[in-house]
Nucleic acid binder design. Structure first.
Lengths: 89, 89
DNA sequence: GCCTTATTTAGACATCACTCTAATTAGAGT
DNA sequence: ACTCTAATTAGAGTGATGTCTAAATAAGGC
């Protein structure tokens, strides 16, 4: 949990692309899956990791699950990275 | 190579802590290793991944290898993350 | 050249990550 | 209740990652 899961989630290119796609707005699991050649179960695992890291949140709409970005965690990762920058001496 | 290796390298807590330690300035492999309970060979593998991602660079000084941060790649990762932020609509 | 110090490379092993197909759950409509 | 669509969970295979101990490489000093 925490920042660890966030960096872990960001380490896979497919998951970063999922986030990229969600930048434009919320999307269903199926709509997201269409952008990849991977099987839906495989994508589902990637969704789960992004969700575990709280980089995305999900809401059910009828039979569809709609994923959307969780900005605050992205900002957190961002500031985590920024804190790695050298201390200007 | 590229941004992929960078996020991959950042995904392990030990490697992020190595970067954290290097914020204060260059350090030898041995000096870095003292901050961890892991064996030196294990740390050496972590150094190699950071080096492969070009997050750090290394310079020999006598028998010691001195590691230091490579700012430009960190900035690159930072901007990569920033690009994942939602498009302000 | 040999010894010491510093660090990496090699080899082995265990665990974890990614992917697939098949089966299951969940909701909506008839 | 049955069926259709949407998505996840289960199980299995393969390959990558992280860790160790032991051996090898590199530089410096005697």
């Amino acid at each position: 949990m925490g920042i660890n899961a966030v960096f872990e989630a960001l380490s896979h290119p497919v998951r970063r692309e999922i986030l990229q796609l969600l930048r434009g707005g919320p999307m269903s699991a199926g709509a997201l899956a269409e952008h990849f050649t991977l099987s839906k179960p495989t994508l589902s695992v990637h969704f789960a990791k992004l969700k575990e890291a709280e980089l995305v949140a999900v809401k059910r709409q009828g039979t569809s699950l709609i994923y959307h970005l969780n900005m605050s965690i992205l900002e957190e990762a961002l500031s985590g990275l920024m804190s790695l920058r050298e201390t200007k001496s």
